[in-house]
Simulated scan of single mutants.
Amino acid sequence: MKIDHIGSTGVNPYQRQLAKTERLAAGKTKGDQVEISKEAKELQEAASWERARQAKLEELRQQIETGAYQVDPRAVAERMIDYYRNQR
């Protein structure tokens, strides 16, 4: 006696599931993504520090040219002493 499978010949349920997941994955394509390394972030921060430094230098230059810049001799002496004490 021979039993024929009527209606189920050539049907692989795993293949249908695979095709379904592939269709869903094709519909949800990933967009482009950019990652900035830690070193690049540090370079960006250094550039902003450089701009701030240049602004400060320009302000000091203006004060010196107009004669408004005053040097605190005590602060200069203290910084010099600290520098030479820490050299040892």
Rank of each mutant, 00 (worst) to 15 (best):
M1D: 07
K2V: 02
K2R: 15
D4A: 07
H5N: 15
H5T: 11
G7C: 03
G7A: 01
S8A: 13
V11I: 11
V11G: 10
N12F: 03
Y14N: 15
Q15M: 08
R16F: 09
Q17W: 10
L18C: 06
L18M: 10
L18T: 02
L18Y: 11
A19W: 05
A19R: 04
A19S: 07
K20E: 03
K20W: 05
T21V: 09
L24E: 04
A25V: 00
A25C: 08
A26W: 00
A26Q: 04
A26H: 01
K28W: 06
K28T: 02
T29E: 11
K30N: 08
G31F: 05
D32R: 13
D32E: 10
Q33D: 02
Q33I: 03
Q33W: 12
Q33A: 13
V34G: 12
V34M: 14
V34R: 15
E35T: 06
E35K: 14
S37E: 00
S37C: 02
S37K: 02
K38D: 07
E39Q: 10
E39I: 03
A40T: 02
A40R: 11
A40S: 10
Q44A: 12
Q44V: 02
Q44E: 10
E45W: 11
S48G: 13
S48K: 14
W49R: 14
W49C: 12
E50W: 12
A52E: 13
A52G: 11
Q54I: 07
A55R: 15
A55D: 12
E58H: 09
E59H: 13
E59W: 08
L60Y: 05
L60D: 04
L60H: 06
R61M: 08
Q62M: 10
I64V: 07
E65S: 06
E65A: 06
E65H: 02
E65T: 01
G67F: 02
G67S: 00
A68G: 10
Y69C: 02
Y69F: 07
Q70I: 00
V71D: 05
V71P: 04
D72L: 01
P73Y: 01
R74C: 05
R74P: 04
R74K: 14
A75D: 00
E78Y: 07
M80L: 14
M80T: 06
I81S: 11
I81A: 10
D82W: 03
Y83Q: 01
R85D: 00
R85K: 13
N86G: 04
Q87W: 03
Q87I: 00
Q87P: 01
